[in-house]
Design a protein around this nucleic acid. Structure first.
Length: 116
DNA sequence: AAATTGACGGTTA
DNA sequence: GTAACCGCCAATT
């Protein structure tokens, strides 16, 4: 298993995963990084979100940090998540225990993402 | 090539 | 609960 990804760049793979998050589910940056085989590249996941092409319509509001906190620049996403059925604790943190999403990366997903 | 950056994670105080 | 520090890694300057 090569260290390099089968697709263009680290970012592309992040997008392919984020695009798969169903409504009512959330993933943490670190969780995404691990799914990609990059256990410690959580920061890059955030970078990828920041530079995400809008035409991918990525549900970036479903990506939170390990504390269950919403992305620092988008507190309004909290409402969007709530509308999808995500429950919050009193302090405004996502209830990760219920909404953490498990997925495996398939080559099929890459097909739809690599045509960027 | 080297230094800087950052939508992070985890631990510590 | 918040704040600060360290580590980690790819992209950017």
């Amino acid at each position: 298993m090569p260290k390099t990804n089968t697709i263009n760049s680290f970012f592309e793979e992040v997008y392919s995963i984020v695009a798969q998050i169903p409504e009512g589910k959330v993933l943490s940056y670190g969780q995404i990084a691990k799914l990609m085989g990059h256990p410690n590249s959580s920061r890059m996941v955030g970078q990828a979100m920041w530079g995400a092409p809008e035409r991918l319509a990525l549900p970036c509001h479903r990506v939170v940090n390990s504390q269950g906190r919403i992305a620092p620049a988008c507190p309004e996403h909290r409402e969007m998540l709530a509308a999808e059925g995500v429950t919050f604790r009193r302090n405004g943190c996502v209830d990760m225990a219920k909404h953490s999403y498990q997925l495996t990366v398939n080559s099929e997903q890459f097909e739809s993402i690599k045509n960027i």
